[in-house]
Nucleic acid binder design. Structure first.
Lengths: 341, 341
DNA sequence: CTGAAAGCGCTTACAG
DNA sequence: CTGAAAGCGCTTACAG
């Protein structure tokens, strides 16, 4: 059924070594031989069996990217960047969903798909330090997103506290005094939501006239537009009357704006809104969204580069100390804080 | 370095066959043996080499999903559905970008990654019939999205003409008489944009008082929000004053709404807008978007099911005639045509 | 420049 | 219930 190197070799009257040489484009094959072999390959429709090649080489050229979910445009855009960049370096990306569940994250972190993938880029939500320590000496792992792990892995993350502080300060600089935070999380202190909340607190603390009460902080269950819409509604219902909102991410911000408009409040005149992520949606909202833009391209490249350095960089590189890489971010000012020009 | 079955077998004092039996959870291993082997596996941190298994079995359990790009939420949401559904059936999904480029699509269609993947789901944009005919007897291929190919492959697609007609008729039923179409494409007649344009024409033709001129049709280069915003601006600048717009997809519709609002036009009072795809964004726009919702879940399941039938269904199933499956769609009415309740 | 042969790590008839 | 051995289809020292 399947045509193998051997079949091609037999038909072309050469050894499998020669066919292999032709297939892999090695020099030092006489043009005549090359042509004859190529002709048989075309005739037979031969295609190399990658699985066999992988087994033999001990490498697959596949890296896995494990993200919570693709439904969030931030992750979709990031995945897009990783896939494109990796493709340019001749690596294939296997995309996995963890749904932000610890058991799934543990599965991937601990070497699921061993030797099918050369390495793994993981963006954890619930993963704990101990899960990482329990990890065997598997394929290299690169972590995405700020978190305080002690296990020795390359780690790519922007400075969330600084970014959140920048966003909040922008609102305060506009003269807002009651800046709410939407998207706090109950539970573990390690999470990114806590870091962004910390940034919010820091900016408020620096600004004498600004309200700082906990009633300005609204938690959400998830990170979706619906969560944002609900949280904003709850906040308004509770009698808190913010004049600005800094949101955990753009989706929550978009949901919040939706609620504000439904309640007859104007953005930014009555309530200014800042998001986080710089997803495409935010640019084309009826009121375009001011946001923090983590440099996704830089994140994707840093992650892939870090992984490939361990894979292709030779022994010193593979053994090098883990690095913590901090791509930059920028505040993108749009109508939700500045109004229509 | 890497621990193999053989290492485990040696240490446990059994044959590799027995270890394999334990690893694969076969019955008929005495509990004592099983336990001893399992202990050695844990001690050594043995993990099966999937590449070797794949080579031996001739199957990998991996299916590829080749989409234009993940940046478009429609494809991201669809990918999400495919990955989740396939995971439930113990299949891994390898996600690929074609960027809607013919050369990329040809690459995948013609058996790129042979024997690494068991089958392929491809959503082509530029692929031609001849590209498909040139295809060898490779892994099964399922096509996604309406197109008129003559090659024998399973094909999953909603009825775009009917859906576009439904959308346009909705606008006409609301009393609109100058319904524009945004997102026509120059070039090949096979494309989905032509089908949706055909549906628009059909609905207009059925409605005596409706304007039908070509000046109501605006082409776009791509399918993004930016394309929609520009096309809407061009349409308005050209002096055409539509009272409704049916857009090729939700992204174009969102871009169009953005332009309308910038120009001081109200949605839906001055111009009603309908999109296509039912992406999440549309639900939370300041003016939520009326749209055609293709049943993504059904599409994803049909695609995976069709592929797996060929893979796992035995000989008759593998040889069965190609099927054209037509998942349904629904018109979702929201504020962009009905106004705020 | 080309060939013969080993071996990557599994699974699976075939015996016993 | 367990073992010895073949073979999936490649690549790669090792010869020549």
């Amino acid at each position: 059924m399947n045509i193998s190197l051997k079949d091609v070799a037999a038909r072309a009257g050469v050894s499998v070594k020669t066919v292999s040489n032709v297939v892999n484009g090695y020099r030092h094959v006489t043009p005549a031989t090359r042509q004859r072999v190529q002709q048989v390959i075309d005739e037979l429709g031969y295609r190399p069996n990658l699985t066999a090649r992988h087994l033999r080489k001990g490498r697959t050229g596949i890296i896995a990217l494990a993200l919570p979910e693709l439904g969030n445009p931030y992750f979709a855009e990031l995945a897009d960047a990783v896939i494109s960049y990796a493709a340019g370096l001749d690596y294939i990306v296997l995309l996995d969903h963890t749904n932000g569940r610890r058991d799934q994250e543990v599965l991937f972190a601990q070497g699921f798909r061993a030797r099918l993938i050369d390495g793994l880029i993981l963006s954890p939500i619930e993963l704990e330090n101990e899960d990482l320590l329990a990890r065997g000496n598997d394929a290299p792992l690169v972590l995405l997103g700020e978190r305080e792990y002690e296990a020795p892995h390359d780690h790519i993350a922007i400075d969330n506290v600084a970014a959140a502080r920048t966003a909040t300060r922008h609102l305060l600089d506009l003269g807002r005094r009651r800046v709410a935070f939407l998207g706090a999380r109950h539970g573990r202190v390690r999470r990114v939501a806590h870091l962004r909340l910390r940034g919010w607190r820091a900016a408020i603390a620096e600004s004498p006239g600004a309200a700082a009460g906990d009633e300005l902080v609204a938690a959400t269950d998830g990170y979706t537009r619906g969560d944002g819409a609900q949280a904003m509604a709850r906040l308004l219902d509770s009698g808190v009357a913010p004049d600005a909102v800094f949101c955990y991410n753009d989706l929550i911000a978009i949901g919040a704006m939706r609620t504000l408009i439904e309640r007859g409040l104007r953005v930014p005149e009555d309530v200014a809104v800042v998001g986080f992520d710089d997803i495409d949606d935010g640019r084309y909202c009826s009121t375009s969204l001011t946001t923090i833009a983590p440099h996704k391209q830089a994140i994707a490249q840093a992650a892939v580069d870090a992984l490939l350095a361990r894979l292709d960089g030779g022994d010193e590189a593979a053994q090098a100390d883990p690095r913590y890489i901090r791509p930059g971010f920028a505040l993108i000012r749009r109508e939700s804080t500045l109004g229509r020009p």
